[in-house]
Design a protein around this nucleic acid. Sequence first.
DNA 1: CGCATTGTATGAGTTAATGCATACACACAC
DNA 2: GTGTGTGTATGCATTAACTCATACAATGCG
Lengths: 130, 130
Amino acid sequence: MHTHTHDFLTQLTLRDDGVPIYVQIREQFLAAIATGALARGSQLPTMREVAVALKVDLNTVRHAYEEMERRGAIDLVRGRGSFVANHPSPAPIDADPLDRMALAAIARSLEAGFAPAELAHRILRLCKGV
Amino acid sequence: MHTHTHDFLTQLTLRDDGVPIYVQIREQFLAAIATGALARGSQLPTMREVAVALKVDLNTVRHAYEEMERRGAIDLVRGRGSFVANHPSPAPIDADPLDRMALAAIARSLEAGFAPAELAHRILRLCKGV
DNA sequence: CGCATTGTATGAGTTAATGCATACACACAC
DNA sequence: GTGTGTGTATGCATTAACTCATACAATGCG
């Protein structure tokens, strides 16, 4: 039994904007992993926990987890649980101008004391705000 | 016939990340409207133009346009075209410093010819230590 | 009027997303 | 071994997303 139901679990939310549920779950976890909110090697909340918390189907959560595993972001271990992969960051890219712009934004974000992932989500949210 | 096929048209892009096409189109237009890249009252590219440019169905584009109209962001006029609504700016958001930073990033993105949503995803991807 | 442009609409068909229920397989603790 | 927790898997049903094709309706221009 868990002593401290994942605090991350309580932060998960679902928008009603047409984006598939599994995509929303995937993005939120990837963002948390990127910012270190979910440390490498640490255990993710159980698929069932997420399913219950968000009141969605177990298979929907599994869909999100599977995609994250395919990307190498997490490891799924039958009978034990899901864990953030501890592979050294394998994504050293910045040739693309968009990537450079993204890195600049990340830098500005960190300077100002904000999590880059938060900024990214604001951008997405503002785009959709009419 | 158009003399200057919408430059905005050439900036439209589609990701392959599970987000419905109509949502991606919607987001990119709303962002452009929010930042003023598409001025109030100005004409949007034709549904057919967008459909051809992105190689998607006319009905898919229409889905996106319909949602934008329902939100009051644009006006659809049969036989004439689609136009950015000139209602007083319906998106008065920028109190939060993070929002301001996000809007600045959106503006830079559009200037450079990139979809803000794309930028947001790059940010997430680059942060992601995997 | 005749015609091109543009938004509107419909129907058939395919694929994906989601939910619900029911299991099975593996790990670990007791 | 037993039991519980966890990931894995299947089948069925429903709804949404998307494509393709074909049209209709309104506008505006010559």
